[in-house]
Design a protein around this nucleic acid. Sequence first.
RNA 1: GGGCGUAUAGCUCAGCGGUAGAGCACUUCGUUGACAUCGAAGGGGUCACAGGUUCGAUCCCUGUUACGCCCACCA
Length: 1026
Amino acid sequence: MTYVRVRYPSTEPLLACSCLILRAPLCDGGITMEKSFDPKAIESRWYPQWEASGHFGPTGAGEPYCILLPPPNVTGTLHMGHAFQQTVMDLLIRYQRMSGRDTLWQGGTDHAGIATQKIVENQLAAQGKTKHDLGRAAFVERVWEWKQESGSTISNQMRRLGASIDWSRERFTMDEGLSAAVRKVFIEWYRAGLIYRGKRLVHWDPVLGTAVSDLEVENVDKDGSLWSIRYPSVGGGDGVVVATTRPETLLGDVAVAVHPEDERYAHLIGTLLELPLTGRQIPVIADDYVDKDFGTGAVKITPAHDFNDFAMGQRHGLEPRSIFTLGAIVNENAPAAYQGLDRFEARKRVLADLEAAGLLIETKPHKLSIPISQRTDAVIEPMLTDQWFVDLTRDELPDGRPGGKRAITDPALAAVTEGHVRFVPENWKATYVQWLTNIQDWCISRQLWWGHRIPAWFDEAGNIFVGESDADARAHAQGEIVGALRQDEDVLDTWFSSALWPFSTMGWPEGSEQNSQAEWARDQRFLPSAVLVTGFDIIFFWVARMVMATTYFAGRQADGSFDRKFAKLADRVPFRDVYINAIVRDAEGQKMSKSKGNTLDPLDLIDGITLEELVHKSTSSLLIPQVREKVEKRIRKEYPAGIQAVGADALRFTFAALATHGRTINFDLKRCEGYKNFCNKLWNAARFVLQNMGVTAEPVEAPGAAALDAALERMDAHIQAIQERAALAGLNRFDAPPAAVAPSLPERWIVSALGIATAEYHAQVAAYRFDLAAQALYDFVWNEYCDWFLELAKPALANGNATERLAMQRTLLEVLEAVLRLLHPIIPFITEEIWQQVAPQLGLGGKSIGERPMPQASEFAIDPAATADIEWLKAVLSGVRRIRSEQNIAPGKPLPLLFTGGGMADIERQQRHAAAITFIARIDPERMRWLEKDDAAPAAAASMVGELKVLIPLAGLIDLKAEQQRLAKEITRLEGEIKKCEGKLSNANFVANAPPEVVLQERQRIADFSTTIAGMREQAGRLSEG
RNA sequence: GGGCGUAUAGCUCAGCGGUAGAGCACUUCGUUGACAUCGAAGGGGUCACAGGUUCGAUCCCUGUUACGCCCACCA
């Protein structure tokens, strides 16, 4: 291809006029782009440039707008849920950044105590080692190594997705600064009496060997049995038959409870029973909790291994009797025969022994729900252990001081009920409020090695001292310290540090060793953040706890008061809005899970993956051969050619388009492919526009000096034209300019349509309706800009005079450039790539489209007159197309076209659009005319546009029968519509009560339908004559 | 037991007190000068069911049915 230096006109704003020297091929007088959009080629290019430019960080100017990234597990990989969420966040951040806000997307990762420790433990296990072989220090060192190794995986995946996080501020929950925040919060809550340590019954995961919080327990329904067991009375007598689902806990029973008003057992209350197999004796007690009608009406009480029993034991002063080790093995508190047995072994043995003793009365099937640890699938064993808790429930402090009334919980509740934090969709508010109202104390200690070690020390007498360090703990010691101090072995629940994320990432606590005074002063403007985007599954784990911690700590001064900015609860919230996104499921609506083998990897959608790789990936972690086979079969069927690469933009657009306010979205690859097509459509629209930017439509034959000079001369003329026009038109080219330089109707119409689409887009983004926002732009680009405007532009570009062409070129560019900016938050890569080509044509400076402002609807004049005109034109063109299609006339065949009926407006419009009609509908200009009054109308196929009749004469082209049938069918349909309207209008109540405009509308409809029918009847009559 | 949600085209989903919509799929035609990752033209719906409010209900209210999620659970 031969290139030559050509000057292109350029204006921005219109009054200015600069000349750019561009390289452009002469062959078509414009810029060329690749024929189709190739995501791979462009995506790798832009992200590094964006990141390097520092453009993702806050500018310090404008109203602050912050989004906190829910920190993913540091050693995790990106899944579809992340990708969805992050698309939404990036959309919002890029949108607000372009809208002039001082934006921060705060990123980072979570140390994810249990999950990460488990991974490293598994790695050790593969080498035949346990963490105990290494010891605590070496093990933790090992986890840090793994964190360093894999920690960047997910960040890099997020970059692939285009996430515009300010990476320079990336944080990790075990960073020094964040750890300082953790210690400070723990210590302050402890000193305020809001954290306590105690021996309590907790949910114990015997596989991990740690307590977990109630939220980390899942209840799974299972078929089990209900066994009835006789506890004979001491000294003979039948005693009591109890019903239980866990017979092995009999070994730890301390009583049997009956309802106080249960006549069957009244005489036994206070007496002693023989506890089978143990030789122990236990009392019969009375308690309201017992349901007379369930089982036998008598309950065995095992306070050490059941939450309800524990509560009852406390009411009755019964000493709990633990019968399991922390590994859930029967311990020395049980008879020797059972010691050393695992829980489920012990159950079998106990049942067998009861049977043998004749004490097992009945076994019947029973549905029950079993508590399972989310992390390990191990059956949770309630276990009596020393743990740390955050007090969320008590009305007063432990020492009886007033003012402790739900000091953490109540503000968190008020923040939402008083509307300082708003849930979107709103109904999640009820979930939040209900949970917080019925909350239990939060068990925050974990018997793990990876995490924030609890800043508490024990002396040799077991007294507790809390502080930043052992020295600090000593300094704050209330009582005497007996001997040496030893730090608590436990670490904190991962969610404890997550709860602090809204302010620990902003330099809080200020002035600590790790955080400078200045950092918090600078960054607290991002508190509260604008919106939290997260899944409903962590409303309790994370959202509620952030509200708790932030309402308590934000802006708290050393003396306990709040600084001015944070004095009000309304300002002490972590975020204003909580956007709860839907859960991503597969196309069939199944939850995606590795064990089902139906997960999709977002990176595989972006980059594509072969069938064999996909099969391998999806089945390699599946251990059961049958499942493996099934999964492989499904994948081979569903993705016979693997997954084609759709690119990050198409994936993002898909997520945006699926982001309704429902609670699940089914991810369908087909949808994704459709949006890839959309990207290609946009690409090709740009390609068309740029191809037509040349100063001349005619190819320049040779790049000779003469030709070049001539071209430059023409250029100068055009530049002058622009200047003149701009001077006349004023700054806004879309204001109605003087007639000599007036934009054409199609131009006015597309600008107007852009204005409407822009308004819709902004409104929907503001409402967090990203599906509708995306749809507004999709519709505009495809159905207005491409389908109609590019077509309407073609006649002007091909046949217009210099001024018309220039005007059309500018409008093509300007609308394209605006729509690229609107789309940029959704599809950043392709819009950047195209914009880089488009911007110089408009003389726009700036390194990146992201630095351009977001278009506002007010920039685009709404133009009802132009819109009506173009709608008329569309109707005429559609009419011709329909006739062609129905009559099977080749699209390229030039046709005659006749007009009849209609009024002056139709005549004017027909004249105005004559060039467009002949060009686009491929009408022979010689044979396009109005029928004179007394012209004999030829047999023709007709299309009604209001009162105007558009006719394609038969001349051997038309299938007469088909046309008659079509007319008859259409007439019947319209008559039906008229009947409906008439039905309404004949109802006196309707006419009396309906709003006048509705009544008018019905009358108008009848009139319109009647006109159309009349025209069609006439046409049908003519056909039958012919 | 408590709370929340869903039911609209073959599929996935928008929608709204007054003409029922999109994408995909389907049918027919088409390689026309941005795009076959495309274009043009079509077919397809008792808006789950029953009552109520209203001039008018797919939409609001009540109930029923079906499905789903969360929380709490009687051993």
